Simulated assay, not measured.
Amino acid sequence: MSSVLYVCVRPERSAADAEHRSFRRGLGVATLDRIDLLHASLETVEWQRYEGFVVGGSPFNVTDTDKSEYQRAVEHDLERIAARALDDAATALFTCYGIGVVTRMLGGDVHTGQPELAGATTVHLTAAGAADALFGPSAPQLSVFTAHKEAALDTPPGAVLLATNDACTVQAYRVGDRLYATQFHPEASPQDFADRMAVYRASGYFDPTAYQQTERAVLAATVQGDELLARFPLLLGD
């Protein structure tokens, strides 16, 4: 069994499969176990045996007011993974939608006042980020892809801010030693992100009338998320 479990929360199969491949490449592993929480609960796998969890993005939003039972079940399972990391029983990295789930779980606020359209952005590491085992080697800044409609209003209680920028105040934080959350997508290469744009073309992450222009900018971008993701396995079992 792999020591890391990829946790999928995307309803779209093509996007989910591609994200799985992106995380596997970024982590630098030959195989990466997977669970799709929209089709199976955590109880269908021996999830407590994993040393690490990487949680992908989703078109869901924590601020959704009309959540389905599926979404509520997904968020419950994600909170269980976060709680395991808080107990130092595993290391977890939550991305995009996941930062909202963790923020709310910790008693923080999630708002819609700092959205970012699909594209590359530069996040700046704080002093705590520069000293962090996962983020530190990338200091002072990191170029990554982002696309989101909601964000953490501030670092939630108990969290340490690791990365920020002018567009979105909370780009990444750590809670304790083993729970990480990022607003951005560290796993996506330019081609990965362009392919994902095609799936979510009408979902409000960019102006669909400017699709080709946005795609060209994405494909021309240089991002460094993979270097951060490649360090994640080094945190397991330490």
Rank of each mutant, 00 (worst) to 15 (best):
M1N: 06
M1Y: 04
S2V: 03
S3V: 13
V4A: 13
L5A: 11
V7D: 08
V9M: 13
R10E: 14
R10V: 12
R10N: 11
R13G: 02
D17W: 01
D17V: 13
A18N: 08
H20A: 02
F23R: 00
R24Q: 15
R25F: 10
R25W: 11
R25Y: 09
G26H: 08
L27Q: 10
G28P: 07
G28K: 11
V29E: 10
V29N: 06
A30P: 07
A30I: 01
T31K: 11
L32I: 05
I35G: 00
D36I: 08
L38N: 08
H39Q: 14
L42Q: 10
L42N: 11
T44Y: 10
T44F: 09
V45M: 06
W47Y: 14
Q48Y: 07
R49D: 10
E51P: 03
E51D: 14
F53Q: 13
V54E: 10
V54C: 14
V54R: 10
V54S: 11
G56M: 12
G56N: 13
G57K: 11
F60M: 15
N61S: 15
D64W: 08
T65W: 02
D66S: 00
K67I: 01
E69I: 05
Q71Y: 04
E75Q: 12
E75N: 12
L78G: 11
E79L: 13
I81Y: 09
I81V: 15
A82F: 07
A82Q: 08
R84F: 00
A85S: 10
D88W: 02
A89F: 02
A92G: 07
L93G: 05
L93W: 09
F94S: 12
I99S: 02
G100M: 02
V101N: 05
V102G: 04
R104G: 04
M105S: 12
G107T: 01
G108N: 06
D109H: 08
H111N: 08
H111K: 05
Q114K: 04
P115L: 06
E116F: 04
G119Y: 11
T121L: 05
T121K: 01
T122H: 01
V123W: 04
H124S: 09
H124C: 05
G129D: 12
L134S: 03
F135H: 04
G136Q: 09
S138I: 00
L142V: 07
K149D: 09
A151P: 00
A152C: 10
A152F: 06
G158K: 09
A159G: 03
L162H: 08
A163N: 06
N165L: 03
C168F: 02
Q171F: 01
Q171D: 01
R174N: 01
D177G: 13
Y180H: 12
A181N: 07
T182M: 14
F184G: 15
H185Y: 15
E187H: 09
F193N: 04
F193W: 07
A194D: 14
A194C: 06
D195K: 03
M197N: 05
A198S: 13
A198K: 08
D207L: 01
P208T: 05
Y211E: 00
Y211V: 00
Y211L: 00
Q212T: 01
T214L: 03
E215N: 06
E215H: 06
R216T: 11
L219M: 09
G225S: 03
G225V: 07
E227H: 02
L228T: 03
L229G: 04
L229K: 02
P233Y: 05
P233F: 07
L236R: 10
D238K: 13
